[in-house]
Amino acid sequence: MEAAAAPSDAREESPYQADHEAFMRLAKENEELKDRALRIAADMENLRRRTARDVHDARAYAIANFARDMLGVSDDLNRALAAIPAEAKASGDAGFKTLIEGVEMTERAMLNALERHGVKKLEPQGEKFDPNFHQAMFEVPNPDVPANTVVQVVQTGYVIGDRVLRPAMVGVSRGGPKQVAPQLAAEPGPPDAQSEKDA
């Protein structure tokens, strides 16, 4: 008796199905590689931007410590000038006047050099107190001035770029009216519309 023919194996893959699975596998690998390439490109762009920002900051703020030290020297020159009695300044002694002018010129030259490198002086007198740029040392009772207005500068403050190098030490007013944030007034309509309302 002949052996029965083996039933055709339904599980056997056709060449078309094998090609299709290989294609799908390669398409999936392609998508994964594309995704990795995009992520690497994004990481490189972020690194480039971060490096550019770090280089910019290094250039802009590299002299911060040096500038802070020079501000101390400028303060000393300013104190020396302030310590000279008014009578001595008015005495008319040519040598003394020349010395005073020399010290003033030295201080100005130092501050000008710092300004060329991005160091700017804060001028808070009469401004609203800002804790980001000012350090309040005392309060001055004054009902005529809005509260929290800088009324006296004890020590000049400086910024380098957009960073505070040294806050201004200030006295602020107390007891006056509160400062109100400026509000935009309601803008009137065009003159024709206004006259129509009135009519």
Score class of each variant (00 low, 15 high):
residue 120 K to T: 15
residue 146 P to S: 02
residue 106 T to Q: 13
residue 35 D to L: 11
residue 183 Q to W: 00
residue 63 I to P: 01
residue 170 V to F: 00
residue 26 L to I: 04
residue 33 L to I: 06
residue 171 G to Q: 04
residue 6 A to I: 12
residue 176 G to L: 03
residue 86 A to R: 08
residue 26 L to F: 10
residue 148 N to Y: 02
residue 167 P to G: 07
residue 195 S to Y: 05
residue 157 G to E: 09
residue 178 K to L: 12
residue 197 K to R: 07
residue 162 D to L: 01
residue 152 Q to M: 02
residue 15 P to M: 12
residue 129 F to V: 01
residue 24 M to G: 02
residue 103 V to A: 12
residue 71 L to W: 12
residue 43 D to S: 14
residue 87 E to N: 05
residue 175 G to S: 09
residue 80 A to Y: 02
residue 86 A to D: 10
residue 51 T to E: 01
residue 196 E to K: 12
residue 55 V to R: 05
residue 119 V to M: 08
residue 36 R to M: 08
residue 119 V to L: 11
residue 149 T to D: 13
residue 62 A to H: 13
residue 188 P to S: 14
residue 131 P to K: 09
residue 105 M to D: 06
residue 170 V to G: 08
residue 39 R to E: 13
residue 91 S to H: 04
residue 167 P to V: 01
residue 161 G to N: 03
residue 125 Q to P: 03
residue 184 L to G: 14
residue 75 D to I: 03
residue 51 T to L: 11
residue 130 D to I: 00
residue 171 G to N: 07
residue 158 Y to R: 00
residue 176 G to P: 05
residue 101 E to I: 03
residue 14 S to A: 08
residue 168 A to R: 05
residue 29 E to R: 13
residue 74 S to C: 10
residue 16 Y to L: 14
residue 190 P to Y: 04
residue 2 E to I: 08
residue 25 R to L: 01
residue 161 G to V: 02
residue 198 D to K: 14
residue 159 V to A: 07
residue 79 R to D: 14
residue 174 R to I: 08
residue 3 A to L: 12
residue 52 A to Y: 08
residue 76 D to T: 12
residue 57 D to R: 08
residue 176 G to V: 06
residue 76 D to I: 05
residue 29 E to M: 10
residue 74 S to T: 13
residue 160 I to C: 09
residue 169 M to P: 00
residue 118 G to R: 07
residue 195 S to D: 03
residue 164 V to Y: 02
residue 46 N to E: 10
residue 136 A to P: 09
residue 116 R to G: 15
residue 126 G to P: 02
residue 163 R to C: 04
residue 22 A to L: 15
residue 73 V to M: 07
residue 112 N to R: 04
residue 145 V to I: 15
residue 71 L to M: 14
residue 89 K to W: 05
residue 95 G to F: 09
residue 51 T to H: 05
residue 193 A to K: 10
residue 33 L to T: 07
residue 17 Q to L: 03
residue 56 H to W: 10
residue 60 A to C: 02
residue 60 A to M: 11
residue 4 A to Q: 12
residue 173 S to I: 01
residue 36 R to H: 11
residue 108 R to E: 14
residue 197 K to W: 07
residue 179 Q to E: 03
residue 139 E to Q: 14
residue 182 P to V: 05
residue 151 V to A: 13
residue 17 Q to M: 11
residue 144 D to M: 06
residue 113 A to N: 07
residue 183 Q to E: 15
residue 160 I to M: 15
residue 160 I to T: 09
residue 50 R to D: 08
residue 66 F to T: 12
residue 152 Q to G: 03
residue 93 D to N: 15
residue 66 F to L: 15
residue 138 F to V: 00
residue 95 G to D: 11
residue 30 N to T: 08
residue 76 D to L: 14
residue 71 L to A: 04
residue 150 V to S: 06
residue 85 P to Y: 04
residue 194 Q to K: 12
residue 104 E to C: 07
residue 90 A to L: 10
residue 13 E to D: 11
residue 67 A to P: 13
residue 22 A to K: 15
residue 61 Y to W: 08
residue 34 K to Q: 13
residue 47 L to N: 13
residue 116 R to N: 15
residue 126 G to E: 02
residue 196 E to G: 00
residue 96 F to L: 15
residue 36 R to E: 11
residue 79 R to T: 02
residue 115 E to V: 06
residue 173 S to K: 05
residue 176 G to W: 00
